[in-house]
Amino acid sequence: MKIAVAYKWAPNPQDAAVGADGSVDWSRAKPAVSEYDPVAVEVGRRLADATGAELVGLSVGGPDVASPMAKKAALSRGLDSAVVVADDALAGAGTTPTGRALAALVQRLGDVDLVLTGDSSVDAGAQMVPAVLAGALGWPALTDVVAVSGTAGDLTVERAHAGGSQVLHVTGPVVLAVAADAVVPRVPGMKDILSAGKKPTEEVPLADLAGWQTAPVEVVATAGPELKVRKGQVIDGADPAAAVTALVAALRADGVL
């Protein structure tokens, strides 16, 4: 039995530059395993250990997804093996082709009743891939998952819910998007990275996947959020007492107090 975890080799948004026209320049951004995906790996690891399942990482993207660095970074976090599709055609792909390509990989893998994903990717953050992936597989998807127990195909799933939580019993195959704070993922140590270098990874040619191209959704444009015009008033804090007086006066003048 296998549990799959979908992970993204994503550029770090801290190094991205947003132009005045809303365009995003990712050229200086260094890729890494997307920030919240290790949480899904950790949830998967614990479940796999408890049930004797194999934990397989799945990733699709541009050529660097198959780089030794990317594979080691993912495998050192607790996966048993990885299957990736690394193709120029999938570099920076949107949520629909990504979700569909992942679904095709899951089908190809076979013997999978549970796919875990992170909450959202660190770069685009669309929170769409789990739903597209589940839709393409014809499986249900549950988001905001904070705890999972049982065995794949017969699971008890806890979801964070406004003002409380929801516990669901799920039978049959399912896609679970794990909340960013579900568990604290392990920090890979030297031995983890060493053994990651020896774990099996399979690279599947994109041509072997069917049905990923259909992309009825297209990004028309991106734009930065409009900034509210602020007063930009700065009060000198050298003399704290005077600063407080000035601040209170300013807030009064604007009717805040």
Binding site: S67, P68, M69, K72, P188, G189, M190, I193, L194
Partner: peptide, 19 residues
């Protein structure tokens, strides 16, 4: 440095970043 590290990896160096 990213380029140098890549060349190292090609030559067979085991790269261990993040440690």
């Amino acid at each position: 440095d990213a380029w140098l590290a890549e060349r190292c990896e090609e030559a067979g160096v085991f790269l261990m970043p993040g440690v």
